[in-house]
Amino acid sequence: MWDDYLFPHSVKEALDMLEARGADVRIIAGGTDLALQRQGGRNPATVMVDITRISGLERIEERDGYIHVGARVTHAQVAASPLIRSRAGVLAEACGSVGGPQIRNVGTLVGNVVNALPAADGAIGLTALDAQAEVAERTGRRWTPISDLYAGVGRCTVDSCQAMITQLRFKALGDGEGDAFERLAKRKALILPILNAAVVVGVDGGAVKSARIAIGPVATKPFVATDAAEWLIGQAPDAAAAANAAKLAAQTAEPRYSLLRGSAEYRKSMVEVLVRRALTRALALASGEGGGHADS
């Protein structure tokens, strides 16, 4: 059970609270996972520092060529944000498929990263966008690639008992760039995925000039298919390229057997399907062909 529930009004106050209350304290944002962890006896913290009243953390905005998403921003807000829908559609799609509406109204995108689950849709979208997180500690703030935040399944390198993530940032997509998110699940809503894949590509002069492919849950953290992405560079942005890159991605991804998610063989084959579909859509977008972003 919890002994105290605190509402700091600034990041500094939050960090002071963490410091003052020692080991039993932790940051809570949406709390959608935390409440379950507590019921399952998996989270021993007894003092909650709720950051959802800290002003400044609620913003989604573009600054210095980056889109910034504050720690209070919920999945629903990401999914509905015109800025994100038009300039980072992959993330809007990903956040729009988390849980059900009620969970999306409460759960935060930052929380999706901090919980460090390799199936988290939002985190897969962020990984494809090569996002960074701003970590606030008493010693100061620093930007870290989100891929460095994973210490294992469910374990984040940012300890919610000592520090917090205040915001995320990633480059807004521009002309000649495209993105897409694909997901496979046992039901159409209110469910974690069997697999998900997010891709961001850039095309210039009839050739792929950049690519980033993120896949979950096939490893202890969001998996980045580097070989496939590297192979894509320089290729013509067509269906054959998407298919071949997807094959490479499937070769390197190592989904494991899971009683509820399915066999390794099936999931490996599905990595190929999802990545191919995502790449096909993203390449078409980047090449300025039809489709359009999630909102169009």
């Binding site: 909650m48 709720d50 009620q102």
Partner: peptide, 26 residues
């Protein structure tokens, strides 16, 4: 009781939340 069915849905500032996993202090 686990945020998986919506039976406990209430509105907080107009938004739906599953109140069975929503800390009351929020």
């Amino acid at each position: 009781g686990e945020g998986e069915c919506g039976s406990c849905t209430v509105l907080v500032d107009g938004f739906t939340v599953t109140s069975c996993i929503y800390p009351a202090m929020k």
